[in-house]
Amino acid sequence: MRMDTILVQETIQYDKQALVGVYEEYSPVLFRYAYRMLGDSDLAEECVAETFSRFLHTMQNGHGPDQNVKAYLYRISHNWITDHYRRKPFEPLDPDSLVDPQDNPSQVVAQRQEQERIRRALLRLPPEHRQVIGLRFLEGWSHKQIADLLDKTVEATRATQHRALAILRRLLIDPEKEDIYDSKK
């Protein structure tokens, strides 16, 4: 029996120990996911905390996951990240704030600026496109797993990925074509 299945059976029974187990199991992976999408440890912690808080809240209200705790938690995290950027859009990059004095400043700034550029591009994707790219390329999920999470067919998630990659290419690799996407939007 898959652990997810067991965990969900337990969580549905409101078993506290199982709920502790869920946290121990998934909080580290959610932290990494949130960090990759947000680029900030404190924000990532906030995302994890809020995700689990919402998770408990929905459980208490008799809702919550019906089959896959992990996917459910990722979905909450994704929504939190989307909301976060909606509330607080990217600010212009301040190179000084990015420097860790212990590292080589120029290298670190360049590296982090590049990461920010990629995150900004991701942010310009429609939320579902972003979610597919994040799960597929940052988290290494299979199309089947993503399809399950989105409640779609594998073909549909492949199509979403295809479109998302095309947009990202235009945004990150062929910026001169960026207008095309912007005008579509």
């Binding site: 580290p28 932290f31 990494r32 960090y35 990759r36 680029g39 440890s41 912690e45 590296q111 590049e114 990461q115 990629i118 995150r119 790219i133 390329f137 940052l138 990659l165 990202l168 290419r169 990150l172 690799i173």
Partner: peptide, 16 residues
């Protein structure tokens, strides 16, 4: 090239 760019987001710091 795109794959390479996305890979740049993969590394995460140790959790405090």
């Amino acid at each position: 090239r795109l794959q390479q760019l996305l890979d740049k987001l993969h590394a995460t710091p140790a959790r405090d």
